[in-house]
Simulated assay, not measured.
Amino acid sequence: MTLPAITAPLTLSGQHGRLEPLSPAHENGLIEAVNDGQLWRLWYTAIPSPEGMAAEIARRLTLHAAGSMLPFTVFDAGGRIAGMTTFMNIDATHRRVEIGSTWYRRDVQRTPLNTECKLMLLTHAFETLGCIAVEFRTHRFNTASRRAIERLGAQLDGILRAHQRASDGTLRDTAVYSITAAEWPTVRTHLGFQLERSR
């Protein structure tokens, strides 16, 4: 069976939100979203500032053209732009991806939107793309992100110490999590249960 290209653009829709291929036309909505909470001021993560949004869109689209990223714009249930997410660090040979470079406007954080978006991305990765594993990475000190990843059912693979240098010069320890294809059926049931409880 021939599997589809991991980087093939697509739209994924659910009850709480929608993922559309990232477009320069989304810039104004993304600027409005990132201003909700001034998210770019968080020191332990890299979220584009309003004035840097056009460059960030261009960066992600360049990586898409190079075959290493599939970027999405996140919309909430009302059709408002709520953030960004991606399939990144794509390994087409071994059918592995990372879900990352994700951020959401403050007023949709801790709502079912993130859970449903992750469920849609994971379903596509495992059931359409035939991935053997999906990774999640975050700063060791980004405790909110780490708890959110753990709530999905991902397992901690380990900490990459002094993994990267942040824009402010500090060293980042990166927490690496993953869900494997063998774990996916249980994780899918778990995420479906979480969404049912949120209704």
Rank of each mutant, 00 (worst) to 15 (best):
A175R: 08
G29A: 09
T128G: 02
L152P: 04
W184C: 10
W40V: 01
A77V: 02
R18S: 11
T143H: 12
A33E: 08
T102I: 07
I90W: 01
M69R: 10
T128L: 03
H124T: 15
E20D: 13
G100D: 11
T170V: 13
T11E: 14
T174M: 12
T143V: 14
D157R: 15
I81E: 03
C117D: 06
Q15H: 12
G37D: 01
T93Q: 14
L42M: 08
V34L: 07
D107H: 14
I6P: 09
I179H: 03
I159W: 08
L61G: 02
T62K: 14
N114R: 00
P71R: 03
H26R: 08
T85I: 06
T128A: 06
R110E: 07
L152H: 01
N89D: 15
G192A: 00
Y104A: 07
L39I: 09
F72I: 05
T128D: 05
A144C: 04
G67T: 05
T111G: 05
W184K: 10
E135M: 08
F126L: 03
F136K: 00
R105Y: 01
P71I: 07
A55C: 01
H163T: 06
P112T: 06
C117E: 09
H64R: 15
D36Y: 01
R151I: 04
H94A: 07
R140T: 05
T102F: 00
F126C: 00
A77Y: 03
G100A: 15
Y44R: 07
L3S: 12
D168I: 14
T174N: 09
A148P: 09
N28R: 12
M69A: 05
L152F: 07
A46E: 10
D107A: 04
A125M: 01
A166L: 15
S101D: 10
T111N: 04
L119W: 08
T138G: 11
E51L: 13
R147T: 14
Q109M: 03
G79E: 07
S68R: 08
Q194S: 02
H26E: 02
A58N: 14
S145E: 13
F87A: 01
L61E: 07
A54R: 08
Y44E: 11
T62L: 14
Y44A: 10
Q109I: 02
T123V: 01
A148Q: 07
G17L: 00
R151W: 06
G67M: 02
E135D: 15
R96P: 05
A8H: 10
R188I: 04
E98Q: 14
I6F: 09
E27P: 04
P48K: 05
L191E: 08
R60P: 05
G158N: 04
D91F: 09
A162C: 15
T7K: 04
S198V: 01
T2E: 14
R137C: 15
L22M: 15
L195D: 11
G153H: 11
D91P: 13
N89I: 06
E27I: 03
Q109E: 04
T174L: 08
D36A: 08
I99D: 07
A46P: 04
A58C: 11
H190L: 12
L22S: 06
I57T: 03
T102Y: 03
R41T: 15
R41L: 15
E51T: 10
